[in-house]
Amino acid sequence: MPEGHSVHRIARQFALHFVGKQVAVSSPQGRFAAGAERIDGLRMLSAKAVGKQMFLEFEHDRWLRVHLGLYGAWDFAGNFTADATTASASGRMGQTNQHGTVVDGADAVADGADGTAAAGTVVGEHEDSLASIGAPRRTRLRMSEQEKASDEVSDFPPEPIGAVRVRLLTADTCADLRGPTACEVLTPDEVQVALNKLGPDPLVDDNGEAEERFVATVRKKQTAIGLLLMDQSVVSGIGNVYRAEILFRARLDPHTPGKLIPEELVRELWRDWATLLEIGVTTGQMMTMDGLTADDYTAALASRDDRHWVYHREGLPCRVCGTNIVMELASARKLYWCPSCQAPLAKRP
């Protein structure tokens, strides 16, 4: 499932290439025909990501809500910028980072099948990032839990490939949605109901208020922090990778009840999430290791194996203490952690 940084990157594509334009909307698959008819021919007004969900605003108070879920993906084709992180402030849907600024895009490299650097693949949970293409060109890009660019498009608009739930089409750019968990047209009131169910997102909400909300929610819960971080009503956008890495970076036992975690440590969790999310949106990769040399950083950009502290490292020695990393199931999702570095708070010196 795409984590928060991926959905923000997708929203930026819409902000940069669809907002302000009249959009032809159809459902090649047929399952979304009625919804497509409600927004067909309308101008897109804004594109907003909150956690793992995206909200596209159209004229006449109509919104398209999309949750990609486990299998959903957007395929972009036509003239577009493959790395939209260089979008202007208006292209960022009014979002800023915690310092009130818009960060520039960062070039990245990708690993090939043999683990060596190879251009053309961009990352989500399991892959790596596409180098910024820069100026728009007629090409294809799939965006979901991973991003993958392909050859240039010869005919535009291209024929739909597979079961396309909804197609959004302008004179220059086409976006096809496949396999989402949710795809529906909502009124503003219905959008607000959906938003009210979501926890704070560092790239959307006022960071001070969002931090206070997160801290207050976590510190009143008996639930283990390893489960709270995956609860989208507690905090938006964190998935399996970020959950494991944020907890390791805090040296926090994932089984610790939220209410037993010192307030300052809960605040550190929030601030670290805000930092990692911004890095993920900028680079297209979940880069969670820090303190790296220039060479190590380049290696981490090139290979997931060099990018994370504990995620996907079951049975391998901890990069800090040498203890084997453990994997267990937590609410049917894989949780990776170091039993030594992440010892219970009561056992810390």
Results as ranks from 00 to 15, higher is better:
C174I: 08
A250H: 05
K220V: 13
S132P: 01
C183H: 03
E245N: 07
V166E: 09
G20C: 14
D272K: 08
S46Q: 14
P339E: 03
G239D: 00
Q95T: 14
M44Q: 08
W74C: 00
R165K: 12
L335R: 06
D290A: 14
L277H: 00
R92P: 03
S331K: 13
T298V: 10
K221I: 09
T275G: 00
P254N: 06
S129K: 06
E328M: 13
R219W: 09
T173Y: 00
M327W: 06
A135I: 10
D306K: 09
V122F: 00
L292M: 14
A119H: 06
R31W: 09
L329K: 15
V266R: 03
L301T: 06
R271I: 01
A210L: 07
F248C: 06
L198T: 02
L277P: 04
H5G: 02
C341L: 07
R243D: 04
E184S: 11
D290Y: 13
L45P: 01
S236L: 00
K347P: 03
G69S: 10
D128R: 09
E212R: 04
N240A: 15
V191P: 00
A224S: 14
A108T: 10
D206I: 05
A194R: 07
E190S: 11
E263I: 05
Q53P: 10
K21T: 11
G322N: 12
D128M: 10
L177K: 01
A194F: 07
L130R: 01
Q13C: 14
V326C: 05
L265R: 12
T223H: 02
E209S: 13
G115V: 12
A106W: 02
K48T: 13
P317M: 07
T96D: 04
G315I: 11
E184M: 11
D172K: 09
V234N: 02
L168P: 04
R65A: 12
T187K: 08
V123C: 08
E268F: 08
G280F: 07
A299W: 09
R267K: 15
P317A: 10
Q53R: 15
A224I: 09
R304E: 07
E314M: 09
G199T: 04
D107Y: 07
D83P: 05
I325Y: 03
P157M: 05
A113G: 13
L70R: 11
G51W: 02
G51M: 03
D290G: 13
K259Y: 15
L168Q: 02
H60M: 14
K220Y: 03
L198M: 10
M287T: 03
V25H: 01
K221L: 10
A274F: 04
L265E: 04
N324M: 14
G258Y: 04
Y242K: 04
D231H: 10
G115P: 08
K221V: 09
D61P: 15
G20Y: 09
K148Q: 06
D231C: 10
K220W: 04
L301V: 08
F80M: 06
D83N: 14
D40F: 04
E59W: 14
L195Y: 06
R165D: 05
Q192M: 12
N79Q: 15
R12V: 05
F32W: 14
